[in-house]
Design a protein around this nucleic acid. Structure first.
Lengths: 352, 352
DNA sequence: TTGTAGGCGTTATCAC
DNA sequence: GTGATAACGCCTACAA
């Protein structure tokens, strides 16, 4: 009935060896005679010692074995986004080689209204490294925190500036391909349904492109604008079917100005736009063509197969994991830019 | 160009105060005169000190602010399961009040083939508490590790035995309802498409019910058997549409023995079974009725609305979070059993 | 309000 | 192969 949990010293004492020897038995860093080893293990067993306290070990080692994954949004929202889901999958693979675990974190700036200092964050979590995801303006802030702490950082889909490895896509070029495809089909009145313009954005028309702080949104829009310089753009509040639906309703509201094609910046948005079209009595692709982005499987899109850009989401995560591992090993990690693959489905067709 | 990161002592020295005073400035545990406070903060700024090292702080405090979430499967698979996704959402809410973050962990027993001791696990992660999810046989092992470490633990969907709070569903009773519904419709030849029987299970017919180590699977099957004692059961290798498809093909292979109704233990499996039915030229629900379980939105199920049991997935997560918080506060947490709601869709109908 | 002292549990280093 | 020693960086009684 000891009042506290046994420590490695207790074990060592019981086994009749020094603490350092006992430590070595558990870490395996140095050879130990089989006899000693046995005695230590037995002592541990009889004392109910289950191994070194990770807190103490990580203080001593300077490593916690934890990689933070910073999401801008509410975690639930992150899980609901199929692209992020795939990325996490790859990321968990990527850091596994490192022997690290993933700690889910929300961005600081999102933690409004919560009790001061109670949240465990970028500032207070015992991280070996951090991966910032799907970033934007928030990025600057989180990045500042992390770099100030001297923690290696990798950014996925966002620009972090000098010396920060970033894993991204050829967003602009890819989106341009989709736009070209539409132009080839004869479309001229094209509208864009964009991802959020910045954190906390409410949906609405994008007035000035310069106000866009989210890199992905800006780049994809730029790609579309290369082909259709005057295409109006309506930004959603997030990558959800419902947001696409709302945006679509807006686009199809006035028959006179209705576009013959819509470039959605994500598959989920595209799915919503298609629903809005159906709602408005428009056929896809006969009356209106729709393109997506991501190449993920979408809910209830049944008869349709989106014309979209397939991105290697899981690969991005894996690459980020490897980059982190490299940095932790003292190497420098290079930025990587993945390429999207255009895939034609049945949601685009010749202009009516 | 100091060779190492500044510590709180460095800051204190620079500010001309004692380390403890500096510490207090950062923790806010005690009042500090505005002047001292300023000086300390200034010193910190000039030294590039970004706050207490979490590793040291957590050693000292005995708390890391991290709650482990243990998945049996590959993390990616967990993310692909909508039920788990919802649960994580609720869980992240639930522990937020605690000021803790979620560390994603894979179960020990699943880590086959990886380098020995390199993985950060239940054994080595600095956890304040753990939540075991969607458990089964693995549970015993993980549980042993965690309890041996003296870490508070909560189990979602699984039996952990004495004194371990568990968050679950009325699986058996709920599944019995669906079965009754089918019998009311006149069905007699009913088959069950079950969730995995144990970790690492390959799909196949369940020979003996006693071999089922996964609680959810066993309970739901028991519920179905209350109404259809002789219903054959085919267990999938996971809760995926493709698995349901494979199972369905098996069920519909021999016309002579084909069931008129299928009880699937998850909505995803049900969706797959429906596909298999279509493939076999069977109409749903005219030729074969199908019930699901979970009440989540399913991919491409378009014209169908599953007859299913809606479970409060997010609530379960939230409850687990609260339970963890309670235990950490020294209170005892009670087990909770949520109730599923039967929802009739258009995938069940009278026997042909 | 501020300072002093001691230890949280481990492990790296180096000598034996 | 084993042991003594010294941090790792912080926090919190308790004393002043």
């Amino acid at each position: 009935m000891s009042s506290r949990r046994p420590t490695i010293s207790d074990v060592a004492r019981t086994a009749g060896v020094s603490p350092s020897t006992a430590s070595v038995v558990f870490s395996g860093k140095t050879a130990v005679s089989e006899a000693t080893r046995r005695r230590v293990l037995d002592a541990a067993g009889s004392l109910g010692y289950t191994g070194p306290d990770p807190r103490a070990a990580s203080l001593r080692r300077g490593r916690s074995g934890i990689v933070g994954v910073v999401f801008e949004e509410h975690l639930g929202a992150a899980f609901l986004d199929p692209v992020k889901t795939l990325m996490m999958d790859g990321l968990s693979d990527g850091v596994a080689s490192l022997g690290a675990g993933l700690l889910l974190l929300r961005d600081r700036s999102v933690q409004t209204g919560s009790a001061v200092g109670s949240e465990p964050t970028l500032t207070t979590a015992p991280l070996d490294a951090a991966v910032l995801i799907g970033c934007s303006g928030m990025l600057r802030e989180s990045l500042a925190v992390v770099t100030a702490r001297g923690i290696p950082v990798v950014v996925i889909e966002g620009d972090a500036g000098e010396g920060i490895p970033k894993i991204g896509l050829d967003n602009r070029e890819a989106q341009r391909q989709a736009a070209s495809h539409l132009r080839t089909l004869g479309h001229e009145r094209v509208a864009v349904v964009a991802l959020p313009v910045r954190a906390g954005w409410e949906r609405g028309w994008i007035a000035a492109d310069e106000t866009i702080t989210v890199d992905v949104t800006r780049e994809r829009l730029a790609g579309a604008r290369e082909v259709f310089p005057d295409a109006p753009a309506f930004a959603a509040a997030g990558s959800f079917i419902d947001e696409g639906l709302a945006a679509g309703r807006e686009l199809f509201a006035r028959p006179a100005s209705r576009p013959t094609a819509v470039i959605a910046q994500s598959d989920l948005l595209a799915a919503g736009v298609i629903r809005a079209a159906e709602e408005a009595g428009l056929r896809v692709p006969e009356d209106v063509s729709v393109t997506g982005f991501d190449g993920v499987v979408v809910d209830g899109l049944a008869p349709y197969e989106l014309t979209t850009l397939v991105q290697p989401a899981a690969e991005k995560g894996r690459a980020a994991g490897h980059a982190v591992a490299a940095m932790l090993a003292g190497d420098t990690a290079a930025s990587i830019r993945f390429t999207c693959v255009f895939r034609e489905g049945n949601t685009t067709g010749p202009r009516a």
